[in-house]
Structures are given as C-alpha cells and as structure tokens.
Computed example of a mutant assay.
Amino acid sequence: MSDQLSPKITVIIAVYNGAKTLQQCIDSVAQQTYANKQLIIIDGGSADGTVELLKRNDSHISYWVSESDNGIYNAWNKGLKQAKSDWICFLGADDFFWDDQVLERVSMQLERLPVDVRVAYGQIMLLTADGVNIHATGEPWAKVKKHFKHKMSIPHPGVMHHRSLFELHGKFDESFRIVGDYELLLRELKTGDAVFLPDIIVTGMRQGGISSNPEQSLTILREVRRAQVMHGQSVPSRVWLMAVVRVYIRLLLWGVLGEKRTRKALDFGRRIIGLPAYWTKI
C-alpha cells in the first residue's frame, strides 16, 4: 500500500502530568507498521517530567507544545489546528494502540468506506490501572445506534474522525469538561451513521478515577443531559433516567456497605446478567 494512496492518520494526544504512562502511548504510535501517520501532542504545562520526555521523543513527534490550557477539549482543538490528515483520532496519555499493526488494519478498512462517512470506530480494551485486561468494548453500529441519542454508546478512543466532520460541525465545545467528545459526535450521529470496523481492537484504555466515582458519574450524566438538550432532546429519556437511578443506588450502597463491598455487590449483579466483572478490577 503506497503512502500516496493510503489515508494519512493523525493521532492527537492530550496530556497533563502524564509522564508515568506517556512513553508507552508514544511508543505505541512510533512502532506502528503504518508509515502514513502524524503524531501531535498537546501538553497542558506539566511539571512532572513530561516536557523532558517530549524532548527525548522529539524525533517521533510531528508537533508538540507545552503550555497552560483550559482542559482536554481545548488541548484537542489546539491539536486539530496542526492536523494534516484525512482521518484523526484522539488519545489520552493513559491510552495506547493495542498492537503495532492497528493503523495498518484500520487504514485498509477506511480506504473502502463511502466518501460520506465521517465517523468510523473499532473496539477498545478496558484495563486496570496496572494494565491488566478487563474486557473489550465496542459493538456494531446497527446494535448501538438506537442508544446513541441517550448515551455515549461507542468507545471514543477507538474512533476515527474524518476531517470533514470538523469542517461541517466545528471543533470540540470547550465548555464541556468530560463529555465534549459525545457532544461533538452527537452533532453528526443524531441523524447520521457511524461505521463499525470489525475485528480490530484499536486502543487499550486504563480505567479508574472518574469512571469509578459515583459523584463524578453524576457530573458526567449532567453533561450528557446538557448535550442532549443542546441537540433538541427537551425531555430526558428512560435510558438516561435509569442511568441516574443506578448511580444513586451506587451512592447509597457506597454509604451503607462501604466501597469494597459495594464493588463486590455490583460485580455479583453483572455476573447474574452474564457480564464480566468490572467494579472489583478498577
């Protein structure tokens, strides 16, 4: 496959004090067998050795900057100004490409897509903070399309965004702190379609922090609801309301049973309905 015919792919990484995991993220891009790629890293003014790490990896990075910013979506928007590619994906410093042939396999499928497709995605592997596999996530669009208006039903670290998505809809809304990726994709997918790239785990994504804290989960749901209202959903859906109920149940259990027992109880419930353990692993 020649570079002239294959789609160029830009990888934009936002980082702030991420020196512990950023090297793995950079290596996962640098070691890709696919040559037609661009790596952009936007650092928010780190003071933990991240800048020194970026300097050591300068030969692998097309563009990087370290300066204060207003959060991840501000950082990604800065990166978009430097992007020179047909397709763009966004990673955090905790993420990394799953193997060294990911972009090769992704590009082969992107080449075959109709010209009007602006969003394509594969699966991601959820990991513990220590890098132990939890389970893969990401299902075909035909299965999750009906849910997208109600929640983020595709894994953003596995998403490829065509340049035309930003030309048509603009950049990330920086007033969001957590779900700006969902709001951006909602602009396209509330009426359009995404394409699932089968048999590809794109990214490994560490869990913990925001994803495991009930209070933060409520913040996420509030932002999701704000995005939905912005896009014409004046009445909250049953799916969103049930998600709120589940978070309040978690909060109640957290207070009564404590965090450890609550995590065990939640995973017991997951096993009953045939899902793998999650809460005791993050």
Rank of each mutant, 00 (worst) to 15 (best):
K81D: 15
R206V: 13
G92R: 05
F268N: 15
G158N: 03
I273Y: 02
K145R: 03
L218G: 06
K84V: 14
K190Y: 14
G44R: 09
W141Q: 00
T21G: 06
Q38L: 11
F90H: 05
V229A: 10
F96T: 09
K78P: 00
H161Y: 11
Q123C: 10
T50Q: 10
I42G: 01
P7R: 08
T203N: 08
A227Q: 00
T203R: 06
I12G: 01
L266K: 04
I12D: 01
G209V: 13
A142Q: 11
I12M: 07
L275Y: 12
Y121G: 03
V245D: 10
R271M: 05
G71N: 00
D58P: 03
W279R: 01
L113I: 04
I12H: 04
T137K: 12
Q109L: 12
G18W: 02
R225Y: 03
H135C: 12
V132R: 13
P198T: 15
T280C: 05
A136M: 13
P155Y: 03
T137R: 13
G131C: 05
L53Q: 09
D173G: 13
G274I: 01
D116Q: 14
A136S: 11
L39V: 04
N70Y: 13
L80G: 08
I249K: 06
D94A: 13
I26T: 02
H147G: 08
D181F: 04
Y278V: 09
I272H: 00
F176K: 03
T219S: 10
D100A: 10
K20H: 12
I124K: 08
G204F: 07
P236V: 03
D181G: 07
S85N: 06
A120L: 02
G138C: 05
G92E: 10
P198L: 15
L189N: 11
D99C: 04
V235R: 00
D27C: 10
D199S: 11
G255V: 02
H231R: 05
R271A: 07
E259L: 01
V29Y: 03
L197Q: 04
Q23G: 04
S153Y: 13
G180N: 03
S62H: 09
M1Q: 07
V106A: 06
S153K: 09
R222F: 12
E67S: 08
Y182G: 09
F90M: 12
I249R: 00
Y16P: 01
G274M: 02
E111R: 14
Q23I: 06
K281M: 02
D193F: 09
W254V: 02
K146W: 02
D173S: 14
E139R: 06
Q4N: 12
E183R: 01
N77L: 09
L53S: 03
I9C: 08
D199A: 14
K78Y: 07
R177V: 15
P236Y: 01
A243N: 14
L218K: 11
V65L: 14
S217G: 14
I13Q: 02
H161N: 14
S153F: 06
F96G: 08
Q216I: 10
V29S: 01
L241H: 07
E52F: 07
S217I: 05
